[in-house]
């Protein structure tokens, strides 16, 4: 498995690295496959910054398909080249299943700079026996650096697979606080508990009391657990909402099995984004990806 991950990462790296950088990758990969000391591992992760910059990957559709074939349901479109190189260096290790790796991996966090920290967290979903690193991922969620937090919260299946309810709810709530694009919290579709719904509704009411707008992503986090409060919130929010927010409310209500309320609110609308959201709602097309479009005209575009 890790072999095929490293191979896939290599096919992404190869066309993007200059000759000397590619040579660095190949030599390092061979070293790592053979086994390296803790110090050497750390040095290779650090030295990667001399060979790759933080340039966006701009993955092609074929490459996205190749990543999908790994069966990890990770979204690497938000990674940069330096992160890709570093994650490649991690997965190239020959002892990913061993204690030796778990110890070395954890040690990296102690000395990691900002870019390395992000790369280390990005690697989590691609490591075997991911449950070994749950505490570490929780530490990452406690960070004050939004970009570090985002590498754990967004585009990765790690949290939904490994976090307990407390940690999961905290991750969703913090994403909301930071106005991250919630549709990129993978697994949120199927993990909206009663507790989470209550926390989100409480949060929405706090925002209202403070006279602050409700982020579109909030509607993604509600489950069908408190229809009275959810409907009431939708009714209150509708009047002041713009068209993108209307669409989010419609989809959010539908996610809570409140299509009827959505229809009622949107009945008179001639706004195309509302009518198409209603249509999607009626067809049950309300999962994360349908919120992606709504973020363009909303504060949560990029936190």
């Amino acid at each position: 498995m890790s072999q095929s991950i490293t191979n896939t990462l290599e096919t992404l790296l190869a066309p993007r690295l200059a000759d000397t950088a590619l040579a660095f990758w190949q030599k390092s990969r061979d070293e790592l496959t053979a086994g390296v000391s803790t110090h050497r591992f750390a040095a290779l992760i650090a030295l990667a910054s001399r060979h790759a910059k933080r340039t966006p990957l701009e993955l092609s559709p074929e490459e996205i398909d190749a990543i999908a074939e790994l069966g990890v349901s990770i979204d690497m479109r938000g990674w940069n080249l330096l992160e890709l190189l570093r994650v490649g260096l991690i997965t190239a290790r020959c002892d990913l299943n061993e204690v030796s790796f778990a110890e070395d991996f954890e040690a990296q966090f102690v000395y990691a700079d900002e870019g390395e920290t992000c790369a280390l967290y990005r690697a989590l979903a691609l490591l075997p026996a991911g449950e070994r690193f749950v505490w570490r991922a929780g530490e990452g969620c406690r960070t004050n650096m939004n970009n570090v937090f985002a590498t754990i919260a967004l585009d990765t299946p790690y949290p939904v697979q490994h976090f307990d309810d407390t940690a999961w709810n905290q991750l969703v709530m913090k994403s909301l606080f930071l106005e991250l694009p919630l549709w990129r919290v993978l697994g949120l579709d199927n993990r909206r508990s009663q507790d989470l719904t209550r926390m989100v509704l409480d949060f929405a009411e706090e925002r209202e009391s403070a006279g602050r707008a409700i982020n579109n992503g909030l509607w993604l986090c509600l489950g069908p657990h408190d229809n009275e409060r959810t409907s009431a919130l939708a009714l209150r929010a509708w009047a002041a909402a713009n068209s993108g927010q209307h669409a989010a409310i419609v989809l959010g209500l539908a996610r809570c099995n409140l299509v009827a309320v959505a229809e009622q609110l949107g009945a008179d609308s001639i706004d195309t984004s509302v009518t198409s959201a209603l249509q999607a709602a009626q067809n049950g097309q309300t999962d994360n990806i349908h919120f992606a479009q709504l973020t363009a005209d909303n504060s949560e575009t990029q936190a």
Binding site: R54, T55, P56, E58, R77, G78, W79, N80, E83, G115, C118, N146, N147, A150, T151, L154, D155, L180, Q302, A303
Partner: peptide, 13 residues
């Protein structure tokens, strides 16, 4: 540069 490492397609916006 708040979005540098998790933006969809651009480091600098």
């Amino acid at each position: 540069d708040q979005s540098q490492s998790f933006s969809d397609n651009s480091v600098l916006r």
